[in-house]
């Protein structure tokens, strides 16, 4: 598996549990008394129709949702969750004035630490951008930019990785390749991946949660056979995907 030497450099896998999560925008209740378990060292995919509140839930766990200060998040080892999360958005969020290498080591820069350029270079090589470290983001294609964003996420070396539809803006082929790459590089970390694509969830998730309704709740939990990344041409996956789509539509 590519990238296995990057697995868990410093941290032991840690799980996250949300108990009685509540989120409302004004009078509109997105979810209330929501319980969610994200097991340590595994990839949990959160599926749901658009607007159901899955991104809001992810942002709440990431600590970047100002509406949701009072929610209870607990880690499986009892430690603080703050500072142990890396976040990857649907948009690459690369800073246009920094080179790819400087973007990848943005975290250290923001924390006032010296960036580990060698590690950043090695990660860029892992995501296939070894020759682009000096380029500005504008010179890269959409897929390359998202790979740089993945390298930046991994550079943070956090135990918990939260991903908000990270591949949804890419074309089908690039998406499949990046799914494989991410699955390899993220193996062993605690990952919560929000997606609206059942097949993506089925390929990448040890565990798949379907979020539905208003206020939203976790309607079903699925643990497909085999280990991710599951092959895209697996007929079982397509059967399951059709079933999930039917559930989402219903």
């Amino acid at each position: 598996m590519p990238g296995s030497e990057f697995v868990m450099d410093t941290e032991v896998p840690v799980g996250v549990a949300l108990r009685g999560g509540t989120l409302a925008f004004g009078d509109k209740v997105i979810f209330e008394s929501l319980d969610l378990d994200i097991p340590a060292g595994r990839t949990t995919c959160l599926l749901g129709p658009s607007g159901v509140g899955k991104s809001s839930l992810l942002r709440m766990i990431a600590g970047i949702s100002p509406e949701a200060a009072a929610n209870r998040l607990v880690s499986s080892d009892g430690g603080a969750i703050e500072g142990r999360i890396a976040y990857m958005d649907q948009r690459d969020l690369l800073l246009p004035w920094l080179s790819v290498l400087d973007n990848v080591s943005l975290g250290a820069r923001l924390r006032g630490a010296a960036p580990d350029r060698q590690r950043a270079q090695a990660l860029l090589a892992k995501v296939g951008l070894a020759g682009e470290s000096k380029s500005l983001p504008a010179a890269l294609s959409g897929g390359m930019r998202q790979r740089a964003a993945l390298a930046r996420t991994l550079m943070e070396d956090r135990a918990i990785v939260l991903m908000d539809e990270p591949f949804s803006s890419l074309d089908a082929l690039t998406r499949l390749r990046l799914q494989d790459l991410a699955a390899g590089l993220l193996a062993g970390r605690t990952v919560l991946l929000v997606t609206h694509d059942p097949l993506e969830a089925l390929r990448l998730g040890h565990r798949i949660l379907v979020m539905r309704g208003s206020p939203a709740r976790i309607a079903s939990v699925l643990e497909p056979d085999g280990l991710p990344p599951r092959p895209a041409d697996d007929p079982n996956l397509h059967g399951l995907a059709a079933a999930i789509l039917a559930e989402l539509a219903g």
């Binding site: 990431a62 970047i64 603080a80 703050e82 999360i85 890396a86 958005d89 969020l93 800073l95 924390r111």
Partner: peptide, 17 residues
């Protein structure tokens, strides 16, 4: 989005975020 990203990167840091 850039500021959100920065917030996750500096979370738990003393004050400098």
């Amino acid at each position: 989005g850039w500021l959100d990203l920065a917030r996750t990167m500096t979370a738990g840091q003393a004050g400098s975020g």
